[in-house]
C-alpha cells in the first residue's frame, strides 16, 4: 500500500521536475556584422525553441523573413540576394546540451553549458558547437549564447563591391526565455 503511494508520488514528482520539455515561440536571435564602414544588425523575435530537460535535446527554428533590419532596403536585399528566403525560408538548429543532468531546474542558478549540433540555413547544414548559459530564476528558464559563423560556410556570397561593408564572419546572439512547458 505504502509502496504504491510512494511510487505514485515519485512518478508525479519526476514528471514535474525531469520529464519536461520547455519551449517558446518568441525567443530572440540577433546577428551582427561589424566592419569599419558599417555595422549591420537584424533581430528575429519569433524564434521557436524546444529544450528537453530530460534528454538535453535543444532545437531552434526560425523564419528568415522574420529578421528585421533598421533599413528596409537592407532587409529586402538580405532576403532577395543573400539568404534567398523564398528558396530557403527557414533556419534550424538541432543539437544537445552536454551533461544536462548537472542542471537542477528547480534551483535558481546560472549554469554554463556546452551545446553541439547541426545548424542549417541557406540549404547548407554545418556542425556547430558553442558555449552558452542556462539560467534559472524563480522557476523561469532562460537560454543564452553568443557564437560566430562564417558566411562562406553557408555559401552566402558577398559581392566584391560591398565586401568592405559586410563582415565575413557574423556574430549571432541567442536569448530565449522558455515560457511554456509540456
Amino acid at each position: 500500500m505504502r509502496k504504491i503511494l510512494f511510487s505514485t508520488i515519485l512518478i508525479i514528482c519526476s514528471n514535474l521536475v525531469f520529464a519536461q520539455k520547455f519551449f517558446t515561440k518568441n525567443g530572440s536571435i540577433s546577428f551582427f556584422s561589424k566592419t569599419t564602414i558599417e555595422n549591420i544588425q537584424a533581430d528575429n523575435n519569433q524564434v521557436m525553441s524546444v529544450l528537453n530537460a530530460q534528454t538535453g535535446e535543444l532545437q531552434f527554428s526560425l523564419l528568415i523573413k522574420g529578421f528585421h533590419f533598421k533599413k528596409a532596403l537592407m532587409e529586402e536585399h538580405f532576403n532577395e540576394n543573400y539568404l534567398e528566403s523564398d528558396q530557403f525560408p527557414k533556419a534550424t538548429f538541432k543539437g544537445t546540451i552536454a551533461d544536462i543532468y548537472k542542471i537542477n531546474f528547480s534551483n535558481d542558478a546560472v549554469y554554463p553549458v556546452l551545446v553541439s549540433g547541426d545548424l542549417s540555413m541557406h540549404g547548407v547544414t554545418n556542425k556547430a558547437n558553442c558555449k552558452g548559459y542556462i539560467s534559472i530564476k524563480e522557476g523561469k528558464i532562460t537560454g543564452a549564447a553568443v557564437f560566430i559563423i562564417s558566411l562562406a560556410d553557408f555559401k552566402i556570397a558577398i559581392p566584391k563591391l560591398v565586401e568592405s561593408k559586410i563582415s565575413k564572419t557574423i556574430e549571432i546572439k541567442v536569448n530565449c526565455l522558455y515560457d511554456q512547458k509540456m
Partner: peptide, 28 residues
C-alpha cells in the same frame, strides 16, 4: 491508487513518445 498510478504511468509514456522533434514540428 493503483488506477492513478496506471494513469500517471500512461501519461508519462505518452509524454516520452511526443519527443523534442515532434514538439518542434508542432510549433512550426
Amino acid at each position: 491508487i493503483l488506477l492513478c498510478w496506471c494513469a500517471v504511468l500512461a501519461n508519462n509514456l505518452i509524454a516520452q513518445q511526443a519527443d523534442t522533434t515532434d514538439l518542434m514540428a508542432q510549433l512550426e
